[in-house]
Every structure is written in structure tokens, then in C-alpha cells.
Design a protein around this nucleic acid. Structure first.
Lengths: 185, 185
DNA sequence: ATAGCCATGTAACCAGTTACATGATTGA
DNA sequence: TCAATCATGTAACTGGTTACATGGCTAT
């Protein structure tokens, strides 16, 4: 049940509308938590029912009105309490690895194509995160101080993508240079 | 919808009961796909309804009877088709990273304790996987040939855990040696 | 006795995805 | 005219978790 807390963290950082939160989920923090707008709006409603956030409607002439949510005193208490709880690492469920595991059921090229596709995706993610890192490293000492902890999570993202790419390269090389054990069709 | 295919892969490898599959999910393949017995039994029922597996009941004198499931011809076709599909990398949702991101809401020691706890968990996983790797490397050339592709996924698991430990060490060191930006209570 | 393994299941619930819905403004 | 951005929502469904349930055998 951490979407709740992810939202509270974002609102603690800076108030915003559901729409704003979705944008933020698609940026930096999206690398380790993500949510669709449908989920966000419903969760905000629940958080409001539980008095963990409140909002004020902001009228806009050119764009649709929006509700600016902010974390309440109760919300802050809830968040602080949650910070002392613990969660185990999430369970990984990755279809790519099932496919490699059972690679004898298909042909080399199919595997290699899918591996290359994933490599490209991870390469894109890596570059996006490295760009973020560059922005951080070029920001003022003051800004860096403030963003020190988020930066650590960004480091995690960079390491994660790099590790994927390394494994994908190793694996593609291996598959290219070996024949697959072939199962009868 | 890959639990279905994970089960088909396991049954293609070797027939077994729901109970057996759960054991296997808790071993090697569990590192990239996992399922509880409740899920497995229901999924087997569905797979049977869809004629992708069949089973025969095996009576046992000392232990409860069991249903030995095996993949059907339809199941194999389904699996082969699925092998040519593709999935994007799974979205990561990790509460630990939210906590680090929002570390200013708690104290250094709370963060360090949770990081150390995770380090221990990853260390345990790493050791388990390295033991598996040693078993693989000590097996016959023949066996190694057969398990070549599963071995690649094991490598992924080892790299993954090692990467986590490296980040955790880096992060703990950083947090130990810096004061946290403190938010007003 | 008590715990752990073997073996199978149902039911309720929660989290997340997909589909459907509306409507104004701006830029190509 | 078509797509994109801003802005908010409901409803149905799927995948996964937690809780509940049964019952014999074996080893401490």
C-alpha cells in the first residue's frame, strides 16, 4: 500500500493537482514508483476522505479548473510513521527471463531480437537518467544539498540500467556464438 | 498474463503437481517469477479448462493423492506462439527508494538500519544464487549444455543482487558521512 | 504434544490496468 | 482537421495477496 505514501511524499515536497502528480510520476520518481491518472485521482479522493490531504479549487480562465492538493498535518504524521516501517525488496516478475529460460522453444533470432529491443529501451532510460544526473551536477551547491537524497535514488536508477545493459550484452554475445538446444517441434 | 506461461514452461520442462510447481517457483525460477499455491492451483484449473494442460491423479499410500499435470499439444502451441511475442521491462515499484527519496522526514539511523536490513537480504539471495552457480559449474558438460539458457538467467540474478549490494554500500557510506537535510517536525 | 511437510482448495480483498467518457485550447 | 496538452473522473476487469479450511504422516 505504498502508492498512498508515494503521493504523500510528492505532496510534502510540493503541493499539486492530480494531473501534476501524474507528470511527476512520469519523471524522476517514476523510475521507482509509477501510477496512471486513474489511480492517482482515486487515491487522492481516498486520502482526502481520510483527512491526509486537503485541496482548494483553483479557477483558471484559459484551462480547466484544477484542485491543488496539499498534505495535511495528519498526512505528515502518517508519512513520518511510515518512514519507520519497513518493506522487503519487491518480487521481480519478468517475462523476458522466462523467455530466455525456455529459449529452446524458439529460434536464436527471435531471442536476439527481443534482447536487442530491451537493450534499446534500457539504453534510452539510461540516457534520460544520465541527463538528469548532469542537470543535478550542474546545479548550484545549494540545490545539490537539497536534492542529495533524491540523487541517491537516481544513482540507483543509473546503476540498474547499466547492469541490465551489461547482462543483455553478455547474453546476446553468448547466444550468438552458441547453438540453442533444440526441442522437437 | 505470464503466470500462465511460466507454468507452461515449467510443465514443458517436467510434469508435476501444483505442489511441485510451487516448490520450483521458490527455487531457481523464483528469482524472476513467483506464485503462491493459491494462485498456482487456480491457474492450473484454468489451464485445464482451456485444454492447455491435462493431468492424471496419482494415488499415494503414505501421502495425499496428487494430480500430475503435463502440458498438452495445445499448450505447446500456445507456448511457442507466446515465445515470439514481446513484453516491455516490468515497472519497478520499490518502497525503499521512496523512503530514501524522502529521507529528510526521518533520521539517519532509521535509514541506515533499513538499508542494512536490505543489504543482508540481498547478500543472502546472492549467496543462494552463487551456490546454484557452483552446482551448475560442477555438473557434467552434458548437463551444462542442457542448462545453458537457464544459466544465463541465473547470471542475471547474480548480477542483480551484486548491483543492489554495491548501491546499498555506496548509499550507506554516503548517508553515514553526511548530515541529512532536516525538515521541521 | 507440536511443528513441519505433503497436498489441495475457496473466498474476500486490494492494487493496478484497460476501456470509456467529457470538453476546452493550442499548434501543425 | 487532427493531434496534443490540460484537467477530471467512472466502471469493469485482471492479477496477486491474505485469510480460512482440511487432514494425514513423520520426526523431535
Amino acid at each position: 500500500m505504498s502508492l498512498k505514501h508515494a503521493i504523500l511524499v510528492l505532496l510534502e515536497q510540493e503541493p499539486g493537482s492530480g494531473y501534476d502528480l501524474v507528470q511527476r510520476f512520469n519523471q524522476g520518481i517514476g523510475q521507482f514508483w509509477n501510477a496512471s491518472h486513474q489511480q492517482v485521482y482515486q487515491q487522492l479522493k481516498k486520502l482526502h476522505d481520510n483527512k491526509l490531504v486537503d485541496f482548494q479549487t483553483q479557477r483558471q480562465s484559459d484551462k480547466p479548473d484544477k484542485k491543488i492538493y496539499r498534505i495535511s498535518a495528519n498526512g505528515k504524521t502518517e508519512l513520518r510513521d511510515w518512514m519507520s516501517e519497513s518493506n522487503n525488496p519487491p518480487v521481480v516478475r519478468d517475462a523476458l527471463l522466462i523467455r530466455i529460460f525456455a529459449g529452446h522453444l524458439t529460434d536464436k533470432q527471435t531471442l536476439l531480437d527481443e534482447l536487442a529491443r530491451h537493450r534499446q529501451l534500457h539504453q534510452n532510460m539510461l540516457e534520460a537518467r544520465q541527463a538528469e544526473e548532469a542537470r543535478y551536477l550542474n546545479s548550484s551547491k545549494n540545490q545539490q544539498m537539497k536534492m542529495r537524497l533524491p540523487y541517491l535514488t537516481l544513482r540507483r536508477g543509473i546503476r540498474y540500467e547499466r547492469e541490465w545493459i551489461a547482462w543483455l550484452d553478455e547474453t546476446m554475445m553468448f547466444i550468438e556464438s552458441h547453438s540453442l538446444p533444440q526441442s522437437p517441434a
